[in-house]
Design a protein around this nucleic acid. Structure first.
Lengths: 140, 140
DNA sequence: CAAACATGCAACTTATATTGTTACGAGCAA
DNA sequence: TTGCTCGTAACAATATAAGTTGCATGTTTG
């Protein structure tokens, strides 16, 4: 399966929108992300449902930020996307009564849970505003 | 995509093999893992290539451990499987020249690399022998 | 040697999740 | 009314793990 790039894409586009200021159409965003307007609406719809974006139909419409980027962390966006799986490996449950399988899975689960916790913690520490300020201004 | 359960399965089966002692056929292992002998051969072939297993054809043949489990870490098995991706999220490279995309990806990449490093470090600290000793003996 | 057993491997199918595409409906502005 | 824009359903494309079938190869046993 192709890796999930939605988080990367959404962070990218949110910072662009902050700098543009006014509403941006799915069409324009699709060109930024080298994809399709429908993909943009589908993904950004999650962020609208979570209160980070608004969308306006009709001429002059498009997408706009609903909150200042300093109040939004990478983790917020991850969760707005439905908290998709962060880890690619899974636990087999082929023989759930087997004590060996249980012990192996317990060991893996602990390590995986810790890795996930730390990744989410780091995402929670970084706001999109802070990230944006780290970028050279000419990027527009 | 279905999560990759090969690591979990291989750890499980290696501890069983250690307790059984003699060679075990793909057929028997397939029943342990509730799967197919061909899947077993395919996956275990990676561990043979890396020197952790041997396989013997013909009557009385099957799979056997090539090294004591105390000398094999979870990380060793992960690497023997070809170091499959640990993280499920990826970085979009839709517009590689865009400074914003670059900065976003850099931030994500750092956090992801750290999570991966820590997970691998933890896998490296645990041997299959140690894991096996944590399990109640009647599990056989 | 012949038969039974077991792995090796190619080729194909299935399952699952993201991503891409087409088509059409609904709302809003000029 | 016309044109722009989002909303959504439906479907195809893509990638990877997993499952399946079939047959060749090698090994043990009688």
């Amino acid at each position: 399966m192709p890796s999930d790039t939605r988080l990367s894409r959404m962070l990218h586009v949110l910072i662009h929108m902050d700098r543009i200021g006014g509403p941006v159409t799915s069409e324009v965003i699709a060109r930024m992300l080298d994809t399709n307007p429908v993909v943009v609406r589908r993904t950004m719809g999650c962020l609208r449902a979570a209160g980070y974006l608004t969308s306006i139909k009709g001429h002059g419409g498009g997408w706009a930020l609903a909150r200042p980027l300093d109040t939004v962390s990478l983790r917020d966006i991850h969760e707005a996307l439905g908290s998709p799986k962060l880890l690619a490996i899974g636990l087999a449950d082929d023989n759930p009564k087997c004590l060996i399988e249980q012990a192996v899975n317990e060991a893996l689960k602990d390590a995986m849970a810790e890795a996930e916790r730390r990744l989410l913690a780091r995402f929670g520490e970084v706001t999109l505003g802070a990230l944006s300020r780290d970028i050279a201004l000419p990027a527009g």
